[in-house]
Nucleic acid binder design. Structure first.
Length: 757
DNA sequence: TTGAGGCTTTCAACA
DNA sequence: AAAGCCTCAA
């Protein structure tokens, strides 16, 4: 029973209340995750519940992994069988397993927002609507918004949600979009949830199978669930009634994704005799931090007032630094970290830098690098969003689902095969007139007239790869197959021929991708390509908690990404009007309240110290903006906040200088090795393990290598590998190292390799 | 008809 | 960084 040892009375009660509906209102820092994991452990260890009878969902992949790890650290390997996922991945699991009950095939493709926009763009073109005037992304988000609504699921007419400034027939576009997804055997993120609801409603067999399988339900971040998620939980738990939801209305920050706060507010009405437990003791932050957080959040009108009891001492005041510009801000952050590391016993992993938008991260990266501070970026430009990775994934998507026209047109001329717009239009036109899909037109060679040879080549490539694919996983490994895609498609060859810094970087990324598949197949030896594709479609921001703790890095991320995490020292940056609160939110009271909740989430991540920073001027793509401090700062009473000042001598480059306002281009690095530095920083996004500083190369003056053939090594980017060949002497030692099934050649002198024993 | 090169535009958070 | 548009050569 020592599971309960370190819990307070309310926490204990929440852990022990296993039967029947339970709502846990858990304020920030109140030990919510602890309660959930201990509750799961209690079910398994003390109540003899089978791990696979437990269904737990949370909001992000990161949180789900973290939860699973924590459960396993209490109950051991048995915890691995607990079903812990995000709502979306749970939906994919359910649809793959039970979808046939409502006529769904299991090889459906998942479309992300980019894919959605592609579909919409094609529709707009076919309807002769100018897609430059009406952005596909605007339409996509409107469609998502509508599909998230309660009325949509209940089959109501939602055309009144269409804004009247749409000078075209939105509903027609919407219908064609739905039709297009259906024809392509594809689902968007909304569909995953919606179809799951349909399944649960229409198939009693499937529902009762699931209710037999899962008897205890736990829903984390309940305040951020949307209507379909609410229904999924409701149907699944309708038999056992053992549903425990956890949430905090003050931390609801996803209404833009359809989250409906009513779900948590109405829990008592939805579930009779629901037990409600409030966790209001905060164990995380010192009182100075909590008082400031409270001062901000109490300006919201739409909230339940609640107590937060500071368990820890008074601590330090919140500090506010107004820098002259964003360089000054980043300098302040870096200098503060450096001096805190000196003065107090803090290390890199104790610091986190939060910002409202990903674009703000670049200057922090620059300064951290300059100061030699190792950092990692969570989120940001997603590895899977890179063109080369999306291309290879598109091959996989198309190979597993020939109806997927979005992927087909992405790859048909990638690499260039002489299949331009004219030919592609012919294919589309013929497919439409014959009522067949586009691949059939190509595969059956139905086009008449002048046909580029490349189209035939493409057909051959696909046919041959499809034949190969049949041997997975028995005769062929998934990773080998993907390697084969990159070879047979000519993708690798065309990058090789280009032989620029950029194309070489792309090849590295592709190899890294293959290596990650190698790792994936170690974990999932029976996985089919279909399964793999569906898994990674949901896993956009790979975040590996194990890796996180291994590395001693400063963490950079958006506030949204910070939800659920805690750090001893937090920097909440860009505290300016129109930055945070974001400029798109300042005109709506509801949006502003959500920004304020976001601010509350940001402040309450801090355990010991929090620094708010803002700038007087900030560059935007439009030029230089003069900024006012965020209203959230003025909401904190003066006696709770210490003011600092920082001037930066760093001059802001003019537009004409080598600097683009996006802050992406390699031009933003002034040194000749800028590109490599950039690559190094990308490692952090990709691998999570990498450290930003390039380690000093082993300056080996004697003629032999410090490595031996067959030795196991760790590369910051490619992970663990094995030395297979050593060539050259002195400064010219070349090492060939195999990672999974790929091999890479490195100059020993320039490569930060770590020996593994 | 295609593709390369040059120029411009894009600009919120996430599954 | 990536995509769209334009022009021009093949």
């Amino acid at each position: 029973m020592d599971l309960l040892k370190n819990l307070n009375n309310n926490q204990k009660e929440a852990v022990l209340h296993t039967e029947g509906p339970l709502l846990i209102l858990a304020g920030a820092g109140s030990g919510k995750t602890r309660v959930i994991t201990h509750r799961i452990a209690h079910l398994i260890n003390d109540k003899n519940v089978k791990p696979y009878n437990i269904f737990a969902v949370t909001f992000t992949n990161k949180a789900a992994e973290e939860m699973k790890n924590r459960v396993m650290s209490i109950v051991g390997p048995a915890g691995n069988s607990v079903f812990i996922k995000t709502f979306h991945s749970a939906a994919v699991y359910i649809l793959r397993r039970f979808g046939e009950h409502i006529g769904l095939s299991s090889n459906f493709t998942i479309y992300d927002s980019k894919d959605q926009e592609d579909v919409i763009k094609r529709i707009l073109i076919s309807m002769k609507i100018d897609h430059k005037k009406i952005k596909p992304s605007t339409i996509a988000s409107k469609i998502s918004e509508i599909k998230d609504k309660e009325g949509y699921l209940e089959g109501m007419d939602l055309s009144h949600f269409v804004p009247d400034y749409f000078a075209f027939d939105f509903m027609e576009v919407f219908e064609k979009y739905e039709e297009g997804l259906k024809n392509n055997n594809a689902m968007d993120f909304n569909d995953l949830l919606i179809k799951t609801v349909h399944l649960l409603r229409r198939s009693e067999t499937a529902l009762s199978d699931m209710q037999y399988m899962w008897r205890y339900f736990m829903i984390d971040e309940y305040q951020d669930t949307n209507y379909s998620q609410y229904l999924i939980a409701k149907y699944l738990a309708s038999h056992s009634k053992n549903i425990c939801v956890v949430g905090d209305d003050d931390q609801s920050i996803y209404s833009w994704r359809g989250a409906d706060i009513r779900n948590i507010l109405n829990f008592e009405k939805d579930y009779e005799r629901a037990r409600i437990i409030t966790l209001e003791e905060n164990y995380r932050s010192t009182k100075g931090i909590l008082d400031a957080a409270h001062a901000v959040i109490q300006n919201n009108s739409q909230r339940k007032n609640k107590n937060i009891i500071a368990f820890r001492g008074d601590g330090e005041h919140v500090k506010w630094c107004q820098a002259n510009n964003e360089y000054g801000e980043a300098d302040f952050v870096a200098n503060t970290i450096l001096s805190l590391k000196n003065r107090e016993n803090l290390s890199n992993r104790d610091f986190a830098v939060f910002y409202r938008t990903n674009a703000q991260s670049r200057i922090f990266e620059d300064v951290m690098r300059r100061e030699g501070l190792p950092y990692r970026i969570i989120g940001g430009q997603k590895f899977y969003d890179r063109k080369e990775i999306k291309d290879i994934i598109a091959y996989l998507k198309f190979l597993t689902n020939n109806s997927d026209t979005v992927s087909l047109f992405r790859i048909v001329n990638t690499p260039v095969r002489g299949i331009g717009n004219a030919t592609q239009d012919k294919v589309t036109e013929l497919a439409r007139s014959m009522g067949i899909n586009e691949w059939k037109v190509i595969d059956d060679e139905l086009i008449t007239g002048r046909i580029p040879k490349g189209l035939y080549d493409f057909k051959q490539i696909i046919n041959s790869l499809q034949k190969e694919m049949k041997n997975i996983p028995a005769g062929l490994k998934l990773s080998e197959f993907v390697k084969s895609i990159t070879d047979k498609s000519g993708y690798r060859k065309s990058l090789n021929e280009d032989n620029s810094l950029e194309s070489n970087a792309r090849i590295d990324n592709i190899d890294e991708f293959i290596n990650s598949i190698y790792e994936y197949e170690q974990m999932n030896p029976d996985a089919t390509p279909e399964q793999f594709i569906q898994d990674i479609s949901l896993y956009t921001s790979e975040q590996n908690p194990e890796e996180e703790h291994k590395d001693n890095c400063i963490t950079l991320m958006t506030i949204h990404n910070a939800k659920g995490l805690e750090f001893p020292v937090v920097f909440l940056t860009g505290m300016e009007e129109n930055t945070f609160p974001h400029k798109l939110c300042v005109d709506s009271e509801d949006a502003l309240e959500e920004e304020r909740r976001l601010c509350y989430v940001g402040i309450t991540r801090a355990m010991d110290q929090i620094y708010l920073t803002s700038t007087e001027i900030r560059r935007s793509f439009a030029g230089i903006d003069y900024k006012q401090p965020s209203r959230f700062i003025s909401e904190i009473p003066a006696e709770l906040i210490d003011v600092k000042h920082q001037q930066s001598t760093h001059h802001i480059p003019e537009r004409s200088e080598s600097y683009n306002s996006f802050g992406y281009g390699k031009s933003s690095f002034s040194t000749g090795t800028g590109y490599n530095l950039k690559r190094a920083s990308e490692l952090n996004v990709n691998k999570k393990s990498a450290v930003s500083e390039s380690r000093p190369s082993q300056s080996q003056t004697d003629s032999s290598s410090t490595f031996e053939v067959n030795e196991r090594v760790m590369h910051p980017k490619f992970g663990t590998g094995r030395v297979v060949k050593i060539e050259g002497t002195g400064d010219n030692v070349k090492l060939t190292i195999s990672f999974g099934i790929t091999k890479k050649v490195f100059m020993e002198k320039y490569t930060p390799l770590e020996k593994l024993n």
